[in-house]
């Protein structure tokens, strides 16, 4: 039993964990969500059309993330401390060939992660699926059950929101 489960877990585990981590910005909660989704996947795998399995996994993961965020009720408070000024400077610096990228990379990543976790739904799901997980527009549309054109509009709005969030703290 462990072998088939492991195969499934290895196929989807990273995808689930990455999505949960960037959405919740907590390793512990991301681990809980991943474990929950993997068990549910195992329980339902035979009932799901194999062609729809990936979309099912992401859809269940997203719902589990939303539940986890609801449980701790800090979804909107994550950004309250504010995105560091350093992060915005780092974006500017990153386009400057003379700048020391390594010095600011961690700060920038930190700020981006905080901004991502604070952005509202479905903007966050779409930006994580597209930009970090590299999913196609069609797969995202299928997962979220929305028209492909809407996915693109949401993605553009998401990046614009991130720009504003990061810039506003200067």
């Amino acid at each position: 039993m462990k072998q088939p489960f492991r195969k499934l877990a290895e196929k989807y585990g990273d995808r689930i964990y990455t999505f949960a981590y960037y959405s919740l910005r907590s390793r512990e909660e991301a681990e809980d969500v991943t474990q929950e989704v993997l068990v549910r996947l195992w329980q339902h795998v035979e009932e799901i059309d194999p062609g729809k399995l990936a979309a099912w996994v992401m859809s269940v993961t997203r719902n589990a993330v939303i539940d986890a965020a609801r449980r701790r009720q800090t979804k909107s408070a994550v950004i309250a401390e504010g995105v560091s000024v350093d992060a915005v400077e780092a974006v500017a610096i990153s386009s400057n060939p003379g700048a020391d990228h390594a010095l600011h990379a961690a700060e920038l990543r930190n700020a981006l992660e905080r901004a991502l976790a604070a952005i509202d739904e479905p903007h966050r799901s779409i930006i994580v699926m597209r930009e970090i997980q590299g999913m196609s527009y069609a797969d995202i549309a299928h997962t979220l059950d929305m028209p492909l054109a809407s996915v693109k509009v949401y993605l553009h709005r998401s990046r614009k929101k991130l720009r504003e969030m990061l810039r506003g703290k200067v």
Partner: peptide, 16 residues
């Protein structure tokens, strides 16, 4: 915007 989009895409996937 280009710099931000680039940094966003550079965020690494995590290993479970």
């Amino acid at each position: 915007a280009e710099a931000l989009a680039h940094e966003l895409r550079a965020l690494p996937p995590h290993r479970c």
